[in-house]
Each structure stands twice: as structure tokens, then as C-alpha cells.
Design a protein around this nucleic acid. Structure first.
Length: 587
RNA sequence: GGACCUGUGGUGCAGCUUGGAGUGCACGUCGGCCUGUCAAGCCGAAGGUCGCGGGUUCAAAUCCCGUCAGGUCCGCCA
């Protein structure tokens, strides 16, 4: 615990600063009553806690102290009597005696114990968040997050980045995430929106010549919440000019390595890379968890001549199940259901068993497989007795996705929680598909620069065009993404036309950016990664709520404040708005 | 919009499968005893619309339907 700063005001010392060196000195400490142990009116032990630690206070008269009372204690630092030291406590060799205890603020019995380590119902924690935050877990998490922030800032400063704030009241740019709308009072009927990210603002800063910009920025998206998604979240947002993708990746690597070090975690200084295509092929996801292996294996060729319907597919992917001993027949049936739930037509399992004739495959389709197919499958997957092979046949992407999810389902609980495997995923496709009107859909955003080698394919085979975009992944979580941006108007026009965005629409939505690009736009690119996610992973939490002081529930409520709440009609009147009755009010 | 899990004194859990008196455990709270504890100990007490509504039944915490809240996930998150 850091406590090198000076104690001021009502206290002479922070608790963690008290030690045997202070024996004989009268001190004043302030904090909360953690526990009271009363041995009759002549001997009472009071544990007092502050932000730095906990110390035992001894009183020789009855005290009216209860848990979580706020107190100031004046007392003499004293070595504990021999045999009563508590090695479990940092201050366990000393105690405060000859004490005067002043109650600064009494406390009602609290809804759940601040001292207890037991899990408390999520709703209760959130309703009394200020008490939850008093607990060690949240104190440690938020202090660690602050250190991570600090390390990131230091890294950015070291690399010559300038911190610049951008507006929270921004302009609607309808695309991508749903935006939070902020009605204008001075212009009834018109709105601002809260930014999904400072994307366009930071590109304008490049046009402005700031060259290297960063910000620890709040981003807001009105989309459904998840364990790793809140309405509002914080990103390290950066943008730089006259640089390549490699340069951006190096800036970010420096920042996340520094952040990890601040959290006491050392990681490889060379963060590995994988192409998007390879990641999908091997792991079935674009955010691979490299803490465990079990890569997917392409077995399309093995069954090219098959008569088995389930194996007649454009692509066959196989997964050798990790921990196959966990897979009973009913578990295998569950996996088949899971695969179907993920959109597969089915899932084929084959157990590798041995009998007098050697190794063979036991499966619902065994008798339909030729000896050659069995032999080739065993060779292709490298399995031996006891293994279980799972096969999905479908289009390439679907087969990969389904087995990729099964790989996670089967191995995740066995992953080393102390391992931290960063990886860059590069060469994403520029377009992720085609919408119902036949227009291409941006995989990242419409300002992403195509890979220059693939320019010729923009007209002939746009879906195969790679982009100069890159994601940073840690233990299967997407931390963030970035790209080199388009700064040339001819390329931008080309992309807009492929996306089916007419010049009028483009001007309407991004006119101010396109206009800015007329006046000397440097080549530039950037990145943003989620600090909530990084902090959660680095402190070993599985939900970003654990590193956010005042988060929302999955349904977007704040159980402490009651938000969102109704407002009086005069508030709507002022904004020139009115509220329609909800469906359920009409029935 | 959808799937699944959870909801039982202030807190954490058991009870639900197979209906039979609000039954149990731990913590906390309140009172008493206690001069070296540190998750103090001992004795005693209080504290419950079993989330809410409806249904089935002689009888519902338990079975059924609906609903609300929390969580995990799918959709969604350029």
C-alpha cells in the first residue's frame, strides 16, 4: 500500500505507516471500526481501518462502538505484549493504548459486512455501492485501475503524445452503435448525441497538425450490456500522423505492457501477431484465447469422397476435444445441442478407442466411414486412444465459428488464470458482408484504409480485400481495435460508393470531416482499447463492473440512484418534447 | 426480441426432485457474562408477505402459468 504522502488534518498518521519505530509516540488515526472484541468492560479491542490498513486499538473501559462507526483515535503506539502479536496483520506487532476514542459519525447496522469476504448478491452490492466499495476487493481493484491509468498516461507522454479532450456533446452520425440522444433546449426538436468514441474528432486533430494525440476517453453506446460491456466505458484513444500500422501497434504495445507492469504482471515485450484468416482457421474466432491450444484442423480433404451426408459440406473442421475424459455420452449429446444452438446443422463426434485390431473410431457414423477415411482422419488430427474428435461441416466461416465456440466452452475453465496472452490480430477483411440491398458493410468503419496490395480487388472481389486494421486481444477478450485511415478523397469516394453511401448522404453525415480533408490531411491512423476490460483482466476479474465505481445493471439501471427515472412534464416541455404512453399503459 | 440460471429473517446458504405446521446451518443484530482477543468465546432473545400475482390441490417455499428483479449468453455492440 502506498502511503508515503503526509497525513494531515484530524490524523497524524495513516495506519499503514505505524510500526515498531513509533513505539512510545502519541498518534492520531482516523477511520472506520472494523470489529469490536469486548472482554467485559475492562478490556476492549477495536480494529480501526483506514484506506491503508488496520490496527488494533485497546480500551480499558466500555465503549459504545459498533461496526462502521467513524472514529478518531488518539493513543500511544505500544509494542504488543509478548505472545499476543498477530503475524497476519501488517501492524500486528503494535497496538494503540491509553486511547481516547472520538465518534465522528455513528453508523446503523449495515446491510452486509464490509469485512466479510463472502459473495453478496449483485443487486444488494449495487444498491449500496458505497458500502461495496468500502470492501477490500473494490478498494484494491479501483486503486489498481488508477495505477494502470497512470502507467498508460506516462507511456503516452513518453512517446510524445498530447492529451486533448474532445466534446461529449457531439453530432449524430447514424451508423454503427446506437447513440445516446441529448435533446437541445435552445433548439427544440434538435439533438446532440453522446459520442460512441472520439473517432472523427481525433481525425480532425490530425488535420489540425497535433501529430500524436491521446485521451483517456469516456465512450457511450446505447446497446445491450454484457459482462464486458457497459453503456459508458473508458478507452485509451490515440491517433498519430505520418505513421504506419506497425508504428501504431508499437505505441499501443508500450502502453499495455506498461499497464501490465503497473499491475505486477510481466508480459512478453514482443506481442505476437496472427492474421484474421489464420485466427479464424485455427481458433474459430477473431479474438483467440491463446492460453490453451487445441487448434481447429481442416479435414475437408479427408472426406472429399464421402457418402455420409453430415460430412458433405464445403468445409469440414475438426476439434480434438480437450479433457476428453470429461465427455460422457450425455455430455456429447449436450455438445451436439450446443452446436445446433450456435447455428450448426449438426456436430459429429468420434471417439478413439482401441480393440484387438488396433485403434478405431467409435461414432454414430463409424460404419459409414471407409478404412481409408478413418486412417486419414486419425493421421490428420494426430489423435490417440481416449481422444474425442468433434467435426462440424458447413460453410468455412460457420464451421470455424461453431467449433471455435466449443473449443472455448471445453477449455476455458481449465485456462491458467494467471497467464496473460496478448496477441495482435491483423489483416481483417475490409468488408464483413453484404446487406439485404446488396451493399457492402464496413467491418471496422468507412474511413478504414484498404490494404494497398488489394486495391485492384476492390471492384472484382471486394469481400476478399484486406484492410489496414488490427485488433489487440488478451486472453480471448477484444481489448480494442484500430486502423490506418483513408486521407485521400479519391479512395474515400470509392469506399463510400461501394458502401452505397451517396455523396449527399456522406456530406450529411461526415461533411465536416470530408471538408477538413480538403485542406491538407496527413496520412494518419490510430487505435483505442478498453481500459475497463484491460483493468478487469489484470486484476483477475471476469466482469468490468468490478473495476467501475458506479456501474449499471444488465438492464441499464442504476440501483443506487434509481436511474433512469421519470422527469416532470415541464422538463419535456422545455425541450419541446412529449412522451407517448407505453404499450403496457395502454392495455 | 430470445434462451438459460437465480430470488427463503439484515447477509450467505440448505429445504423444492417425491406438496403435509416457516424446518435447519453459519454470519450479523439486540441483551447478559467475560482482563489479551484478533472471523474472540459462552448464555439468551428478536427478526420471515419463502420476489410479486394467479392457478392446481383438502393442503404450495415446493407443482403449473404469468410477471418483476439480478446474472450469463444469443441478437445487438460500424
Amino acid at each position: 500500500m502506498e502511503n508515503s504522502f503526509e497525513a494531515k488534518g484530524l490524523r497524524s498518521h495513516y495506519i499503514a505507516n505505524l510500526s515498531l519505530d513509533d513505539v512510545g509516540e502519541r498518534v492520531a488515526i482516523c477511520g472506520w471500526v472494523a470489529r469490536v472484541r469486548e472482554h467485559g468492560e475492562h478490556l476492549v479491542f477495536v480494529d480501526v481501518r483506514d484506506r491503508t490498513g488496520l490496527v488494533q486499538v485497546v480500551a480499558h473501559s466500555s465503549v459504545d462502538l459498533r461496526s462502521e462507526y467513524v472514529v478518531q483515535v488518539n493513543g500511544l503506539v505500544s509494542r504488543r505484549p509478548v505472545g499476543t502479536e498477530n503475524p497476519a496483520l501488517a501492524t500486528g506487532e503494535i497496538e494503540l493504548v491509553e486511547t481516547e476514542i472520538e465518534i465522528l459519525s455513528p453508523a446503523d447496522p449495515i446491510p452486509f459486512s464490509v469485512q466479510d469476504r463472502s459473495e453478496v448478491d449483485e443487486a444488494t452490492r449495487l444498491r449500496f455501492r458505497y458500502l461495496d466499495l468500502r470492501r477490500d476487493r473494490m478498494q484494491e481493484n479501483l486503486r489498481m485501475r488508477a495505477k494502470i491509468n497512470s502507467a498508460i498516461r506516462a507511456s503516452m507522454e513518453r512517446q510524445g503524445f498530447t492529451e486533448i479532450e474532445t466534446p461529449l456533446l457531439w453530432t449524430p452520425t447514424p451508423e454503427g452503435a446506437r447513440e445516446f440522444v441529448v435533446p437541445s433546449r435552445l433548439h427544440p426538436g434538435l439533438t446532440y448525441v453522446l459520442p460512441q468514441s472520439p473517432q472523427i474528432a481525433k481525425q480532425l486533430l490530425m488535420v489540425a497538425g497535433f501529430d500524436r494525440y491521446y485521451q483517456i476517453a469516456r465512450c457511450l453506446r446505447d446497446e445491450d450490456l454484457r459482462a464486458d460491456r457497459q453503456f459508458e466505458f473508458t478507452q485509451l484513444d490515440l491517433e498519430a500522423s505520418f505513421v504506419t500500422q506497425r508504428d501504431i501497434m508499437s505505441f499501443i504495445s508500450d502502453a499495455v505492457i506498461a499497464a501490465s507492469a503497473a499491475a505486477g504482471i510481466s508480459v512478453d515485450h514482443e506481442i505476437g501477431e496472427i492474421t484474421w484468416r489464420d485466427s479464424m482457421d485455427k481458433y474459430g474466432v477473431d479474438k483467440p484465447d491463446l492460453r490453451y491450444g487445441n487448434e481447429l484442423i481442416d479435414v475437408t480433404q479427408v472426406f472429399s469422397e464421402t457418402s455420409v451426408r453430415a460430412l458433405s459440406a464445403p468445409c469440414l473442421k475438426a476439434l480434438v476435444a480437450p479433457y476428453p475424459s470429461h465427455l460422457s455420452r450425455s455430455k456429447l449429446d449436450d455438445l451436439v445441442d450446443r452446436a445446433k444452438g450456435l447455428g450448426a446443422k449438426g456436430l459429429l463426434w468420434l471417439r478413439v478407442v482401441s480393440d484387438t485390431d488396433g485403434v478405431r473410431l467409435d461414432s454414430p457414423v463409424s460404419k459409414f466411414l471407409t478404412d481409408q477415411e478413418s486412417k486419414d482422419l486419425i493421421a490428420a488430427t494426430g489423435v490417440s486412444e481416449g481422444d474425442v474428435i468433434l467435426i462440424v461441416g458447413d460453410e468455412w466461416a460457420k464451421a470455424c465459428q461453431v467449433l471455435g465456440q466449443l473449443r472455448i466452452d471445453l477449455a476455458k475453465s481449465e485456462a491458467d488464470p494467471r497467464a496473460y496472452k496478448f496477441v495482435w490480430v491483423v489483416d481483417f477483411p475490409l468488408f464483413e458482408g453484404v446487406d439485404e440491398d446488396g451493399r457492402l458493410i464496413s467491418a471496422h468503419h468507412p474511413f478504414t484504409m484498404p490494404n494497398e496490395e488489394d486495391f485492384p480487388k476492390l471492384d472484382t472481389d471486394p469481400l476478399s480485400v484486406r484492410s489496414q486494421s488490427y485488433d489487440l486481444v488478451l486472453n480471448g477478450w477484444e481489448l480494442g481495435s484500430g486502423s490506418i485511415r483513408i486521407h485521400r478523397r479519391d479512395i474515400q469516394s470509392k469506399i463510400f460508393s461501394l458502401l452505397g453511401i451517396g455523396s449527399e448522404e456522406a456530406n450529411n453525415r461526415f461533411g465536416f470531416l470530408l471538408e477538413a480533408f480538403k485542406y491538407g490531411a496527413p496520412p494518419h491512423g490510430g487505435f483505442a482499447f478498453g481500459i475497463d476490460r484491460l483493468a478487469a483482466l489484470l486484476v483477475g476479474e471476469e466482469n468490468i463492473r468490478e473495476v467501475i465505481a458506479f456501474p449499471k445493471t444488465q438492464s441499464g439501471s442504476d440501483l443506487m440512484t434509481g436511474a433512469p427515472k421519470e422527469v416532470e412534464n415541464k422538463v419535456w416541455d422545455l425541450l419541446g418534447l412529449s412522451v407517448r404512453p407505453q404499450k403496457k399503459d395502454l392495455s
